[in-house]
Nucleic acid binder design. Structure first.
Length: 535
DNA sequence: CGCGTTTGACCCGCGC
DNA sequence: GCGCGGGTCAAACGCG
């Protein structure tokens, strides 16, 4: 109620200013001065109240106060409301009584001046709010960083052990797939997760991931249908978290209490501009379905990884409803086989992102963008955003590569230098993430984000950014990926050669995003989904 | 002939 | 309990 009034006032004043020519300087000053006299001390108070309350209620109360402050003009007009009303009233009176024209003119000027002042105040408040939000996010990011460091120290030893055990990609992958057995400890984690409200520590991430993987893979093991070759594995994974996944759970042994825990899966989606039906991620994909999704005229294609029998990784490809030039690719699951370099990099990145998401998103339930100045300060592409969304059925982290300067550079296939061709996924990906970091205080225009979300959005974005950046797993993966891409192993088209080698459709082999890569030394996502969108 | 895609049907979870 | 929507299956089809 009050809030509305406040907004109305704001709009009215702006509207008024827009419609009416700027009041004469002299009048302005005079009017403002006279009418403000009493209220000059108000602005500061308003600002403080407004920000502390976080809504317009204070502002409204302020309005109430302002009435008193501007009693002069309002009492005359008998209407202590918005400038618009005053204006109307004023004009009406002006026409009705020609005698008091001069008085009304003066009042008009005063009102205009007041409106102008209010407008300025609103602008000031806005800017202040922005600043405060930025400061808040900055502090939050720093806090996350600190927490991450501490967690990292605790987790480093554990990771070391894991790393050593992952001598080979394949092995590591399989380990991921078979994490279930080793989930005795994970069970505890599950319990923790159930109760946990906020988790940012890497440890948590890994644990969650493990759980996830367990969950996913369990079905296959006891799968109802083992008749299918490749499909078995896929089905087993049920990584997409499709309704069917649960169905597989019954087969699981009672020890795997996974069934009782909320069905949560991490997905990583990538938004990128691309004319191609899909992005090349270095993996081989087979299309197994297509369906029209609600709210989007473009069909959604379902692919499963065919680089290895039983690979549980799946991806969804769909064009953005708002901008069909944007291709959204969502990955889920971990590869149970070695990946080509190109795919590896991407997989690592997505895995890390998914891991981060699983660990941090559980609580945030919001969207966020990476913005941690501390990491990767010097990345080529400054505008990538990671959006976390835990509100969806599955925690999803979305990497928005659409903001890249050059869409095609998102995933440079050839070495970065030859950006002319297709950009390599990981590269662009990481770069964007990094870019985000660089612009921690900035609120990039994320397509996925509704402009109207305003401050909330900004804070969310920043929070997510900070979370991502602060996650050791993610950062480690990014570092590894970057080193792979930029450093020694030039991204190649991979065995599949894919850059888009297969247009066939599906663009199967494009990215190797793989939602989750199973690379030695990289965080493994048990079940995460990576979505790549090519814009 | 084999492989991959297409596409309608089916299954399942979820919300009302 | 019913309808809706997402995800998957599998037969049909196309291509090399």
């Amino acid at each position: 109620m009050d809030g509305q009034r406040g907004e109305l006032t704001f709009l009215h004043s702006r509207d008024f200013l827009r419609r009416s020519p700027a009041p004469p300087p002299a009048d302005d000053g005079a009017a403002a001065g006279s009418s403000h006299g009493p209220s000059d001390s108000k602005p500061p108070i308003r600002e403080v109240d407004f920000f502390s309350s976080g809504n317009c209620s204070k502002l409204n109360s302020d309005e109430e106060e302002s009435k008193d402050c501007h009693g002069l003009s309002r009492s005359t007009l008998s209407d202590p409301r918005t400038g618009l009303n005053l204006l109307s009233l004023n004009s009406g009176m002006a026409t009705a009584t020609g005698d008091d024209c001069s008085n009304h003119d003066t009042e008009m000027r005063m009102l205009r001046g007041e409106l102008d002042r209010l407008h300025e105040e609103n602008c000031k408040l806005r800017s202040m709010l922005d600043q405060i939000a930025k400061n808040y996010n900055n502090l939050q990011a720093q806090l996350l960083m600190a927490m991450q460091k501490q967690a990292h120290l605790n987790h480093s030893e554990q990771q070391r052990d894991e790393m050593t055990s992952m001598s080979s990609p394949t092995k590591s992958a399989q380990q991921l797939m078979d994490l279930r057995p080793a989930c005795a400890a994970i069970d505890n984690v599950k319990e923790e997760e159930k109760t946990r409200e906020v988790s940012v520590s890497p440890t948590t991430t890994m644990e969650v991931m493990s759980k996830e993987s367990d969950h996913i893979h369990t079905p296959p093991l006891n799968g109802t249908n083992n008749n299918h070759n490749i499909e078995d594995g896929d089905r087993a994974s049920q990584s997409w978290g499709s309704p069917k996944s649960p169905r597989l759970e019954p087969s699981k042994g009672g020890e795997e209490q996974l069934a009782d825990m909320p069905f949560r899966k991490a997905r990583v989606s990538v938004r990128a501009r691309s004319e191609a039906p899909s992005i090349s991620d270095g993996c081989q994909w087979r299309k197994y379905g297509q369906k029209m999704a609600k709210g989007n005229p473009c069909p959604r294609a379902y692919y499963r990884c065919t680089m290895a029998v039983g690979c549980p990784v799946r991806k969804q490809v769909q064009r953005c409803a708002d901008d069909k030039a944007i291709l959204i690719t969502t990955y889920e699951g971990n590869h149970n086989h070695p990946l080509p370099p190109a795919a590896t990099a991407m997989a690592n990145t997505t895995s890390a992102a998914a891991a981060m998401l699983l660990s941090g998103s559980t609580t945030s339930k919001e969207t966020l963008a990476s913005t941690n100045p501390g990491y990767f300060p010097s990345l080529p592409y400054p505008s990538t955003i990671a959006t976390l969304s835990a509100s969806a059925p599955f925690p999803t982290i979305t990497l928005d590569l659409t903001q890249n300067h050059n869409p095609m550079q998102l995933f440079p296939r050839p070495p970065p230098q030859t950006s002319a061709t297709f950009p390599l996924p990981l590269h662009g990906y990481a770069a964007q993430m990094m870019g985000q970091v660089q612009h921690s205080m900035k609120l990039p225009a994320m397509p996925m984000l509704q402009p109207g979300l305003g401050q909330r959005h900004a804070s969310l974005v920043e929070s997510v950014s900070a979370a991502i950046a602060s996650d050791p797993n993610f950062t480690a993966a990014l570092a590894a990926a970057l080193s792979t891409v930029m450093g020694g192993a030039p991204p190649r088209n991979g065995p599949d050669g894919n850059i888009n080698a297969n247009n066939n459709n599906s663009g199967n082999n494009h990215f190797l995003p793989a939602g989750v890569g199973v690379l030695p030394g990289s965080p493994q996502l048990p079940q995460s989904c990576t979505t790549f969108s090519t814009n």
